[in-house]
């Protein structure tokens, strides 16, 4: 749910990174945080367990620049990927403007990817959203691992609607900003249509 503030001349949007446990959602945000100028970002918050697994969410406020005198600010959130945190995932999807599905390319994680994608559709549906109508991109992460599944197979299974996809190695930053820019652009374009 975007927030347009004509008084402070700001456009605020919410982007959620979704995906199975350990797919690299938090890593995406950490890389963005580390590579962004201090004036363009706020504090990154991670509500995590003692073993650094996301418990509730990660949060990173980011400023992407100005459009026609309006500052565009994006609030990036991740969800906890582990299956049993479903109630928390639902809460974080509330008011979402754009979604990134981060898939783990490892062949062993295919089932987990499929389950998480189904869960994303279900949870969005419960809140009255349709994934096919939301600004949405897919990131195929961990492309550098030897056990990663072929691209065509991942696309076929995880991206049947053929949305924009990025190959990524989030720990090294490969594809991270391309993914963010693509979803942010889709969000702004969608807002423009609605406005």
């Amino acid at each position: 749910m975007s927030f347009i503030n004509y008084s402070s001349r700001e456009i605020n949007c919410k982007i959620v990174y979704y995906g199975p446990g350990l797919c690299g959602k938090t890593t995406n945000l950490q890389y963005i945080y580390n590579k962004t100028n201090p004036e363009a970002k706020g504090k990154m918050i991670s509500l995590a367990t003692e073993t650094e697994r996301t418990l509730f969410f990660d949060f990173l406020p980011l400023s992407l620049g100005e459009i026609r005198g309006f500052r565009t600010r994006f609030h990036l959130y991740t969800v906890p990927g582990q299956v049993f945190y479903d109630a928390s995932r639902k809460l974080i999807l509330k008011g979402v403007d754009g979604v990134v599905f981060v898939a783990d390319s490892q062949i062993e994680r295919m089932e987990a990817n499929i389950e998480s994608l189904d869960n994303l559709r279900t949870n969005l549906g419960e809140q009255g959203y349709d994934l096919d109508k939301l600004p949405y991109v897919v990131q195929l992460n961990k492309r550098d691992l030897p056990n990663s599944a072929p691209l065509t197979e991942l696309q076929e299974v995880l991206n049947p609607t053929n949305v924009t996809t990025f190959e990524a190695v989030a720990v090294k930053g490969v594809g991270v900003f391309d993914t963010l820019k693509a979803v942010a652009k889709l969000v702004l374009t969608e807002l423009r249509k609605g406005g």
């Binding site: 706020g42 918050i45 949060f59 406020p61 609030h75 809460l91 509330k94 008011g95």
Partner: peptide, 29 residues
């Protein structure tokens, strides 16, 4: 949804953005 709208008082040393997001998370939970 966690966006700060208006504030008053001793806010100059507060991280209003983080406080807003965490409060919204708390309320959602």
């Amino acid at each position: 949804n966690g966006q700060a709208i208006a504030q008053s008082g001793e806010v100059e040393h507060l991280d209003v953005t983080s406080l807003s997001s965490l409060t919204a998370g708390n309320v959602a939970a």
